[in-house]
């Protein structure tokens, strides 16, 4: 099976670690995922703001970039929803029958948890993440795609992870794409309530399947100095015992890296000693 990663424009430009995590996770599960570098964006920002003509060439680019693959996997419920529910609409707007046919014939786009659970048939991806976590099911994952309890199944199988129930989980965080700036005050009012619920859980990490929503909630939590970081689900699922040393700290990365290297040396030293004694 030829699998393409659609990293999404937001992850490409702002959250490359999420894309790397998907690559690492899928390789660990035996999928040699490819990154077609002609890809840009799913066109959702244009469609959801009403710019359908502008979306036409972007969708055309999407279809061209992923032609020939058997499946497209993306770490975003929202972008998967756009590909599945909006590309047909944009193709009709183009008035070009060839584009309509191309969109209809495009490979299926899966949100990451759908791909893991439905296509690969795994719920235990061998991850280790020893932290107290709460999970926000983003609206498009939940209601547009209907991913249901797939993310929960995956999280429950992560060793060391303690999952705290998020009150009012199904309620929108208030991001909503351009809504976040066109109706900034309402967006922030919604996000403040979401952030309050996150804090109530006592979790250290808020996890979700969409970095755009996390950027919004995380931005509020950060401004509040709430002491809760946000993390994409893919990064939690990609984490293993090997990474445990590298789990981010409040220190600058170079210092953390030095310490981590030192610790590894110590372990290594201990092992060698044990072996010789």
């Amino acid at each position: 099976m030829k699998v393409a990663l659609m990293v999404t424009c937001v992850n490409d430009a702002m959250f490359p670690d999420t894309g790397k995590a998907v690559v690492r996770l899928l390789r660990r599960l035996g999928v040699d995922v490819e990154f077609p570098d002609g890809q840009t964006c799913c066109a959702q920002p244009m469609v959801n703001t009403g710019y359908l003509d502008e979306a036409v060439p972007v969708v055309r680019n999407y279809v061209d970039a992923f032609a020939g693959y058997d499946a497209v996997v993306t770490p975003s419920g929202s972008c998967a929803g756009s590909a599945r529910h909006q590309h047909g609409l944009v193709a009709r707007r183009s008035g070009d029958p060839a584009m309509e046919r191309a969109v209809a014939a495009a490979p299926p786009t899966y949100e990451l948890t759908e791909f893991l659970v439905d296509v690969l048939g795994v719920t235990d991806v061998g991850a280790y993440f020893p932290h107290r976590v709460t999970y926000h099911p983003t609206c498009h994952s939940l209601r547009m795609l209907g991913v249901g309890d797939r993310p929960r199944q995956l999280l429950e199988n992560v060793r060391g992870l303690r999952l705290a129930e998020l009150p009012g989980a199904a309620e929108c965080c208030g991001f909503g794409g351009t809504f976040a700036v066109k109706n900034a005050e309402t967006s922030v009012a919604m996000g403040s309530d979401k952030a309050r619920h996150v804090r109530e859980t006592g979790a250290e990490v808020l996890v979700a399947g969409d970095n755009s929503c996390l950027m919004h909630i995380g931005g509020l939590l950060s401004r509040q100095q709430a002491g809760v970081r946000v993390m994409h689900l893919a990064e939690v699922l990609a984490a293993t015992e090997d990474d445990a040393e590298q789990v981010p700290t409040e220190q600058p990365a170079d210092l953390a890296a030095q310490q981590s290297a030192g610790r590894t040396d110590a372990i290594q030293h201990g092992l060698e000693q044990g072996a010789t004694s």
Partner: peptide, 24 residues
Amino acid sequence: PGAAWTGARDLPAPPRESFRAWWR
């Protein structure tokens, strides 16, 4: 217009390298 975001929400600084550049 960016103030509509950062008025109430922190925004991460862009990463040194995009995913695309890393892949390449």
